[in-house]
Lab assay of single mutants.
Amino acid sequence: MRVFPVYAPKLIVKHARIFLTGVIWVKDLGRLEFEKGRFLLPRKSLPKVKQAILELNELIEAQN
């Protein structure tokens, strides 16, 4: 598990694309899981977490 002390979308996306499957922890967002290079949306999450995951997945799609 990698810990990101700040929310840096480009760096987080780079990590997810390299490792494809895993878990990261982002300060103020908490634990985020990714599989096959995409972030998974938890069943229950705060609106800011949901927005961050959608933003990260959009960045991943834009890079493909």
Score class of each variant (00 low, 15 high):
K10C: 10
N64C: 07
T21K: 13
V23G: 04
F39D: 00
N64V: 12
Q63E: 14
G30M: 03
V13M: 06
K14E: 15
V3Q: 08
V3M: 03
E33I: 11
V6S: 05
G37Y: 04
K48W: 10
P42N: 11
V13N: 02
Y7S: 02
N64S: 07
I18P: 02
A16C: 07
L41T: 11
L20S: 09
L20W: 06
E55T: 07
R2K: 15
S45V: 12
L29S: 01
K36D: 12
L29Y: 07
W25H: 06
V3P: 06
R2E: 15
L11W: 07
E35P: 00
W25P: 00
M1S: 14
R31I: 12
A8Y: 09
F34Q: 00
K50N: 07
E61T: 10
L56G: 03
I60K: 03
Q51N: 14
K14Y: 10
D28F: 11
L32M: 13
I24T: 02
R17F: 10
F34E: 00
D28P: 12
G22D: 02
A62Q: 11
Q63F: 10
K44F: 08
K10D: 12
K27N: 15
K27G: 15
K27F: 10
A16H: 01
H15N: 03
L20Q: 10
K10E: 13
L41H: 14
S45F: 09
A16K: 00
G37F: 04
E61N: 10
L29G: 00
W25R: 05
L32C: 03
L41G: 04
T21Q: 14
L54W: 11
G37M: 11
Q63R: 04
D28Q: 14
A8H: 15
F34C: 03
R43K: 14
I53S: 03
R17I: 11
Q51A: 14
V49A: 05
P47Y: 06
I18Y: 14
R2G: 08
P9D: 03
N57Q: 03
L29Q: 01
L32Y: 05
G37V: 06
K44S: 07
V49Y: 10
T21D: 13
D28Y: 11
F34W: 03
P42L: 04
P42D: 07
Q51P: 04
F39N: 00
L56K: 01
I24D: 01
E33N: 15
R31K: 15
R2Y: 15
L29E: 00
T21I: 08
R38A: 07
F19P: 01
L41S: 10
L32G: 00
R38S: 10
P47G: 09
R31W: 05
K27T: 15
L54I: 14
G30N: 02
A52S: 07
R2M: 15
M1L: 07
L54H: 13
I12T: 01
K50I: 07
K36N: 13
F4M: 03
L46F: 12
L29I: 12
L54F: 13
R31F: 10
G22F: 01
L41W: 09
T21H: 11
R17V: 13
V23H: 10
A8D: 10
K48E: 07
I53P: 00
I24V: 08
F4I: 03
R38L: 12
F4T: 01
A8S: 12
I12Y: 01
A62W: 10
F19K: 11
N64K: 04
L56A: 00
L56P: 01
T21S: 13
K36I: 05
V26R: 00
L41C: 06
E61Q: 11
L46E: 08
P47Q: 15
P9M: 04
Q63K: 05
P9C: 03
P42I: 05
P5H: 15
Y7L: 03
P42F: 05
D28N: 15
G22V: 03
L11N: 06
P9W: 02
E35C: 08
K14V: 08
G22N: 02
N64P: 11
F34P: 00
P9I: 04
A52Q: 04
L41E: 11
F4Y: 05
D28R: 15
L40I: 12
V23Q: 14
L11R: 07
V6A: 05
Q63N: 09
P47H: 12
Q63A: 13
K10T: 14
A62I: 14
V26M: 01
R38E: 10
R31V: 10
F4H: 02
A8V: 10
K27E: 15
P42T: 05
P42E: 07
I18G: 07
F19R: 06
E33Q: 15
F34S: 00
F39I: 03
L32F: 14
G37C: 08
L11Q: 10
L59P: 01
W25D: 05
P42A: 07
P9F: 03
Q51M: 12
K50R: 11
V3F: 15
I60Q: 04
P5T: 08
R31H: 05
R31N: 05
Y7N: 03
K14Q: 13
K10Y: 14
E35M: 11
F39C: 01
I24F: 05
G30I: 00
W25C: 09
K14S: 13
L11F: 05
S45L: 12
R17D: 05
R17P: 01
E58I: 12
A52N: 03
P47I: 11
A62D: 10
V49F: 06
V6K: 08
N64G: 12
R2A: 15
L40G: 04
V26D: 00
A62N: 11
V23L: 08
L40A: 05
I18F: 11
N64W: 04
